[in-house]
Amino acid sequence: MLIANDLCIMRGGKQVVANIDVALTPGQMLGVLGPNGAGKSTLMAALCGELAPTRGQVLLDDIPLNQWRGPERARRLAVLPQSSTLGFAFKVEEVVAMGRLPHGSGQQCDGEIIQHALVAADGLHLLGRSYLTLSGGERQRVHLARVLAQVWPGEEGQILLLDEPTSALDPLHQHTTLLAVRAFAARGGAVMVILHDLNLAARYCDHLLLLDQGRAHLSGTPEQVLTPEGLKSVFGLDVLVQAHPERGHPLVIAR
């Protein structure tokens, strides 16, 4: 379990994350919403140990994250950044194989996991292609496969942090991606995902955290967070919220 208590982060004299509590629990998927500059990515950077919080701490299994040895932490916690810049002509399977770096589980085992992860990210047909020849969306899926391979197949105690994993994807792959992440959670993994699409968040997340200027404006189930009042005050956007005709989760429509 990954827990952050009373997290505060200052950057350039400005408080970008203030008094945030987060608990990522097995089998659950937490969605983080908020306007640009609300502190979503900064929060994620602190949760994965990349950025030291100004106050508060991040605990993985009750041990401060910065006390974990790198490879041990990496076997438990995988992170998909917003975008990766890779300027070298690695093959798709070599990029995915980098996810196995902390493991040392052997070539045969890794090979099978790379296949499974590519299937989950719908990228198996990209095998053998050079990364540099891929489109933006295909690259995003290859990196998803890489982080899935890092914590494959996913079990209790493993955690996945994703920063806008669907930003470059077509509508179908937005859903296949979040279904793959949902499957990871179903196997016992804990997930935090930053999303901009409110309806994707409503459909796939168990809990939502709505950030506004670094503070938690609302937190709870999609029904509790996705309210016209809350969205109006954070995004300044007038919306209608209705129930999805077939699935029942909230559906947000701009007015």
């Binding site: 950077a45 994965c48 140990g49 990349e50 040895r69 790198g70 490879p71 041990e72 932490r73 990496a74 076997r75 916690l77 995988a78 992170v79 950044p81 990766s84 980098m98 996810g99 770096l101 902390p102 982080v147 890092q150």
Partner: peptide
């Protein structure tokens, strides 16, 4: 960042 996330 990615290298850090991979435990390096």
């Amino acid at each position: 960042s990615e290298a850090h996330h991979l435990g390096i």
